[in-house]
Write a protein that binds this DNA or RNA. Structure first.
Length: 638
RNA sequence: GCCGAUGUAGCUCAGCUGGUAGAGCAGCUGAUUCGUAAUCAGCAGGUCUGGGGUUCGAAUCCCCACAUCGGCUCCA
């Protein structure tokens, strides 16, 4: 037997007989190294604790309290769920079951449907399997052997998966626990006894291999944790997230409604929501002027031939609404770019004019499929903080960098963290290969030049060009695209845009489509959840509310009210015949930043006593002092 | 669009196996005039999402539509 040399994370080294199990190698390093371990990492590869180690390298334990470790645990729980499901429902066909953020799922093909009672039964069966402490065992077989095995078991999906593996894959690995064997890369926990806390959450439809042309399977979602305590904490988080849900807060704070009678995906902004939106839009206009944008406005409907020329008719028709005016077909705009290009085309442009930056708070309509609508974040009519920048190819990079800076600044203002993705050419696209390469390279170089961290999203670009997407997360960690920068060589070509260069010749400009907040509706949705409805003073639709202790202070209260309104403070009054505690509570539930208490003392001294939303009492102060306080909190945003 | 669940007063929700609808909060009226998260009493409020059907009788059972919720696909 030959020897292997092993290095541990603390740089101690040992040598072992080749083929010793990873778990044993770890155990001989530190006594408790495998106590919380669910797998091992050998040279950056995850393996089972029971896997024989046959090569030199660095080894470490993967503990269940790490993100990777809990992923292994959840993946193993999904196998246990599949075992339980097959025992309870023998004609179910298994497909795939990975771990995901916060849990796991497994997709099954089953002619009937799983009910909540079924989930309960499955859960009980899983607990029994866990109690058995059955070991997970791995074996490698040839792909032919695996195909035979799954054919015999009557598992066509598994057979399809194996058959679709690349030709150079000669063997596959199988994992067995109890009587259940699954095609799986692994690794897995040593035995089902490691499963201490799990819960099945819900059933949902999911297409086989994520393709809507394929059969719809039934996906069971669940979650699992190292300990019941961690799982309890997770459910507390879920409850908190539900309290932050913008659809709930939108109702409670009286910001907006979506009315069935009016139509799905259409937002009706109530006074407070409209105020919030106005504040954001005013801020945006100002920020755009600072950065050299021109404000423009285009019509809501444009003749069909415009959409034919742009390619929307070929590539976007099913998402558009159409209408007819005097027998002439019109398309309701789903994007703002066409009008902006017509502005560009309205006269001859010189290279000296570029870049031109046209900004519009443009309202667009998109016919979203019914199942995708979601509060403010996925709607059928929305307003974009849209701009189109027409520039020379040489100016592209600095313009993209400037936009990325703008995004960074804006997200800083609202306190958002975000992720960046570069989306490349989709299958259904217009434009030449060369233009796509140039456009993609321009975006990528700007990201790299700015040392931004980003992921690549293959084939997810717009039909006219690649894009950089900036994604924000909502309270339930769902990601929403807000800002985006799209590089477009195709539309300037289609609309024959040009400028006169220094050489006196015509040249083609490049167009950048970009939004900073994206859809204002969506952004506000995410913003509501981000602040849990407790908006900072500069954004709060109501900044302060006057509350009287008794009716006798009403005349003074009215005086203060008029003064604050006049100064421009967004103030309300609550002079109802209720006890102070009642009014404080109502203002608190409305998350108003300042409650201005007026009792006899305040009337006598010509003051108000502000109580902050956080419960802190600021004591009596003059109205002027309060105004200074509020203005101080808003100054950064003016 | 697809899969599943849900749809009762302005809001949150009860309403068992079919026997003609109930609470809390909000609203209105009155009493009370009170110092930092709910004062008391009374009143009013519903074609039980809509449309068909089964039945002597439907909020309850069946079918269809619409909407919402959770996913899938798609997407700002």
């Amino acid at each position: 037997m030959s020897k292997i040399d092993i290095r541990y994370p603390d740089d101690t080294r040992k040598s072992f007989e080749k083929g010793l199990a990873a778990g044993e190698i770890l155990a001989s390093w530190k006594k408790d190294a495998v106590k919380d371990a669910v797998a091992a990492r050998l040279n950056d590869r995850l393996i089972d604790l029971s896997s024989p180690v046959t090569e030199n390298g660095t080894i470490d334990a993967v503990n269940v309290n790490t993100p990777e470790g809990v992923g292994v645990l959840r993946h193993s729980i999904s196998h246990v769920m599949a075992e339980a499901v097959q025992e309870l429902f023998p004609n179910v066909k298994v497909t795939i079951g990975p771990s995901i953020e916060d849990g796991f799922y497994y997709d099954f093909d089953y002619e009937s449907t799983f009910t909540p009672e079924d989930l309960k039964k499955i859960e009980e069966r899983m607990a029994e399997i866990a109690a058995k402490d059955a070991p997970f065992t791995r074996r490698e077989v040839s792909r032919e052997e695996a195909v035979e095995l799954f054919k015999k078991k009557g598992e066509p999906y598994k057979v399809e998966l194996i058959n679709d593996l690349p030709a150079d894959v000669k063997t596959v690995s199988l994992y067995t626990q109890g009587d259940f064997t699954d095609l799986c890369r692994g690794p897995h926990i040593p035995a089902t006894g490691k499963i201490k806390a799990f819960k099945l959450l819900n059933v949902a439809g999911a297409y086989w291999r994520g393709d809507e042309h394929n059969k719809m399977l039934q996906r069971i979602y669940g979650t699992g944790f190292a300990t019941p305590k961690e799982m309890a904490e997770y459910f507390v988080f879920i409850e908190e997230a539900k309290r932050r849900d913008h659809r709930r807060l939108g109702k409670e704070l009286d910001l907006f409604q979506i009315n069935e009678e009016v139509g799905p995906g259409l937002i009706i902004w109530h006074p407070k929501g409209a105020m919030l939106r106005t504040i954001i839009e005013d801020w945006e206009r100002k920020e755009h002027f600072k950065r050299g944008y021109d404000i423009v406005l285009g019509p809501q409907i444009l003749r069909d031939h415009m959409w034919i020329r742009s390619g929307h008719m070929d590539h976007y028709k099913e998402s558009m609404y159409f209408t007819e005016v005097e027998k002439e077909g019109y398309g309701i705009k789903p994007m703002n770019c066409l009008s902006h290009m017509m502005i560009y085309k309205s006269k001859i442009r010189s290279y000296r004019d570029l870049p031109l930056r046209y900004f519009e708070l443009g309202t667009v309509h998109r016919h979203e499929k019914t199942g995708v609508l979601h509060g403010l974040t996925r709607v059928r009519q929305f307003t974009q903080d849209d701009a189109h920048i027409l520039c020379t190819p040489e100016q592209l990079n600095s313009e993209i960098v400037a936009i990325a800076d703008f995004v960074k600044y804006a997200m800083g203002i609202f306190g958002f963290e975000y992720e960046v993705e570069l989306s490349t050419r989709p299958s259904n696209s217009i434009g030449s290969d060369r233009d796509w390469e140039m456009a993609t390279a321009a975006l990528e170089e700007s990201l790299k030049g700015n040392r931004m961290v980003y992921d690549i999203n293959e084939g997810d670009g717009a039909f006219y060009g690649p894009k950089i997407d900036f994604k924000l997360k909502d309270a339930l960690k769902r990601k929403w695209q807000c800002a985006t920068i799209q590089c477009d060589f195709a539309l300037p070509e289609r609309f024959d845009l040009h400028y006169i260069g220094a050489d006196g010749e015509k040249h083609r400009p490049v167009m950048l489509h970009r939004v900073i907040l994206g859809s204002i509706e969506r952004f506000i949705g995410v913003l509501i959840e981000h602040y849990a409805g407790a908006f900072p003073v500069w954004l709060a639709p109501v900044q302060a509310i006057l509350v009287t202790v008794t009716d006798s202070q009403i005349p003074y209260g009215e005086e203060v009210y008029r003064k604050l309104l006049d100064i421009g403070v967004r103030v309300e009054k609550d002079f109802k015949n209720e006890k102070l505690g009642h009014k404080i509570r109502e203002a608190q539930l409305q998350k108003i930043p300042y409650m201005l208490v007026i009792g006899d003392k305040e009337v006598a001294s010509g003051t108000i006593s502000p109580r902050q939303r956080d419960g802190k009492n600021l004591g009596a102060m003059t109205v002027d002092a309060l105004v200074d306080l509020i203005r101080g909190k808003c100054s950064r945003y003016e």
